[in-house]
Design a protein around this nucleic acid. Structure first.
Lengths: 204, 204
DNA sequence: GTTGCGATGTATCGGCCCGATACATCGGGC
DNA sequence: GCCCGATGTATCGGGCCGATACATCGCAAC
């Protein structure tokens, strides 16, 4: 999953690790806290070994190449996607396994939807919807069957979860409808959206 | 986190691993998919080593004690909480670190709120609210600052995340208000709740 | 002017947890 | 009589996290 996210960001522009982490947090902040360095650097190494990215000494280190490193000077490393990496990125984008529909997997795929083709987008949205619907049904069953056997707080947790599922399904329905009509998300199709943060430009 | 959940369930009644996993899924299904055996058994072993639970041969194995195990017969193992374990459980319930406020940590704590004292409940609910409010502010900033630089799908993901935060905060506000007034969740304080799944019995 | 602090930056280590896999029992349907 | 799905215990490789260490740079306070 990290592979996809990193390849996707490096596809936009080369970067060093620290910057990568910040961008990752900005792009995926809604779905996962913040990727830790303990994951980032090993993953970058793995991607490098596989030939999907290159590692180059950045300006900070290059500045010092003439002076031999007295105190083992560690420069910044700039990572760059390769042609193979771009291919791999497309491959990861298109393939939709079970892990594509869980919270994290779906979030990462969705974040790169502008680079994904129409059919794949639709397939992933529908797969995700099915997944959430199953979770919702499970919750509904649990609530109607075992309502008396659970304490008030567990019950409230289930109800809140059920609400969340219903909200998620509505959101997905809207996205699927927009997708089928060939539009992009963001231009309000219904009355239910007041101008929040950014953009409310005219229909493209 | 698993420690707390397992100890909490074993506090209700002794169980073997398979049953434990099912109950865990039922109780925490809204917050984490389903605890895997690759986590469960090592954790149980750890709890046993620490002296917080005991492992006993269950009926299926006991039935065969007279016949020497020809084919290394593996019986079911029943786990039971000890006095130390109950103490540890209370300790884990009361202590609220940063990880108490993330999605999983909060969910697990909340699921055992009926065994948590009033003050701790309030402290955790408020800590969680603060956490979500911070996430919400970060998202709001990102949306107002970088709206033009993001593609439509990333933007939509942020908006959906922001909605989720606002919903979560409203939910927490309600719970905090209920908590302060000394009530239990579930008895609708506002008009906004129609009878869904289970229970709408009279006030206890 | 130096001292100290927060942001930038790279990297590892122990440990939790997951998914896949293996193996064994048992009840019931075909 | 046979297979299949539910029940049940257990391990292994690997991904990812939190804590930690180390190093540089700009800037503000003293």
């Amino acid at each position: 999953m990290l592979d996809l996210a990193i390849l996707g960001l490096l596809h936009e522009s080369p970067m060093h690790g620290y910057e990568l982490r910040k961008q990752l947090a900005a792009k995926l902040g809604t779905i996962r806290a913040a990727i830790s360095y303990g994951s980032l650097y090993p993953t970058l190494r793995r991607l490098h070994t596989a030939g999907w990215i290159t590692e180059e000494a950045g300006p900070a280190a290059a500045r010092q190449t003439e002076v031999p490193p007295l105190t083992s000077r560690r420069g910044r490393v700039v990572y760059k996607i390769t042609a193979d990496g771009k291919e791999r990125f497309q491959e990861l984008l298109a393939q939709a396994g079970p892990e594509t529909y869980d919270d994290t997997g779906f979030g990462v795929h969705f974040a790169f939807f502008s680079r994904t083709d129409h059919d794949t987008r639709l397939r992933i949205l529908e797969g995700r919807r099915r997944r959430i619907e199953e979770r919702r049904e499970g919750l509904r069953d649990a609530l109607s069957r075992a309502a008396e056997r659970l304490d008030a707080y567990t019950l409230e947790l289930q109800r809140h979860g059920l609400d969340g599922c219903e909200r998620e399904v509505r959101w997905l329905e809207e996205l699927i409808a927009t997708e089928r009509s060939g539009g992009q998300p963001g231009q309000q199709s219904q009355e239910g959206r007041q101008g929040r943060g950014g953009r409310e430009g005219p229909v493209t």
